[in-house]
């Protein structure tokens, strides 16, 4: 409401939200990328994202145990499994937030993800004490987006998340669903190629969940690849193209979603879907 339609921000709201928005990507430094100086987008591509026999030790045991996982562009992968299976750790490995104790995580062959190439949404949105708009513009500032471009870009993201009318409201006064949609908009600030979501709707009611899922589907339709950690089988069924099932830090299967819910390949997956206790 605070944004008249004639302002450039509103015009840009219609512009595609893909493509680099955050200034000079880290990969654009000449030393990093002498071979391909022109295609900025390609410089930020993380593909393939790979975990090669990675292990993470927590409290003396391998919480992630020699896990190998490869992500390529396209589609939504649901990462499922019981509590303590290592789902969240795996997501943090893929985001480059933690380093494996053994094995290697690589993005396009490099040891760190290209700046802005991976967006993350956590279970708790962790919003700053700023306005809704301010949370997004600040994310853009942190990522090095030029000052002039931030506001328009942020308004476009808020429009997509259905939060335009809340732009000037304090972020922490938003409803749970609005907060999580804002977290999603913030994660999309730099137009990441890969979006990682850790139980994004675990704290939300069904209606808010549906809105977050709708936003996620829309984003993915625009070419963003997503990985969703969830133990909501219904959610996986609704949004995922593929399911990877994790148990005791190991991948037991990776199956097209339709197939997984019809006939899980692994006994663990079957037991989980039948609500049996997994040991």
């Amino acid at each position: 409401m605070s944004e008249p339609a004639s302002r450039p921000a509103a015009e840009q709201a219609a512009a595609p939200l893909s493509g680099p928005a955050c200034g000079r990507p880290a990969g654009a430094r000449a030393a990093d990328r002498p071979a391909e100086p022109t295609r900025a987008a390609a410089a930020r591509d993380p593909w393939p994202v790979r975990l090669d026999r990675v292990s993470v030790r927590r409290g003396g045991r391998a919480a992630v145990d020699a896990l190998t996982l490869r992500l390529d562009p396209g589609g939504v992968l649901a990462l499922m499994g019981p509590n303590g299976a290592g789902k969240s750790l795996t997501l943090r490995l893929l985001a480059g937030l933690i380093a494996p104790d053994e094995g290697a995580a690589t993005w396009a062959g490099r040891p760190t993800p290209p700046r802005g190439a991976v967006g993350v949404v956590f279970q708790r949105p962790a919003l700053l004490r700023r306005s809704t708009l301010g949370n997004v513009t600040h994310a853009l500032a942190l990522a090095g987006a030029p000052r002039r471009a931030r506001r328009a870009r942020a308004m476009a993201l808020l429009a997509q998340a259905g939060l335009t009318h809340r732009a000037d409201a304090p972020a922490r006064a938003l409803s749970g669903g609005e907060q999580q949609r804002l977290a999603l908009a913030r994660a999309l600030a730099c137009a990441p190629a890969l979006l990682l979501l850790d139980e994004p709707t675990a704290n939300l009611d069904p209606r808010a969940t549906a809105q977050v899922e709708a936003l996620l589907r829309e984003v993915c339709a625009q070419g963003v690849t997503a990985l969703v950690v969830t133990h909501d089988a219904g959610q996986a069924r609704r949004v995922a193209d593929e399911v990877a099932f994790l148990h005791n830090g190991r991948l037991t299967e990776r199956t097209p979603a339709r197939e997984f819910f019809a006939r899980p390949a692994s006994p663990e997956g079957r037991a989980y879907l039948e609500g049996r206790l997994l040991l």
């Binding site: 937030l97 700046r115 802005g116 991976v118 967006g119 993350v120 962790a126 942190l142 090095g144």
Partner: peptide, 8 residues
């Protein structure tokens, strides 16, 4: 984590 994920 959020801030690091945002590249801060």
């Amino acid at each position: 984590e959020t801030l690091r994920a945002l590249g801060a």
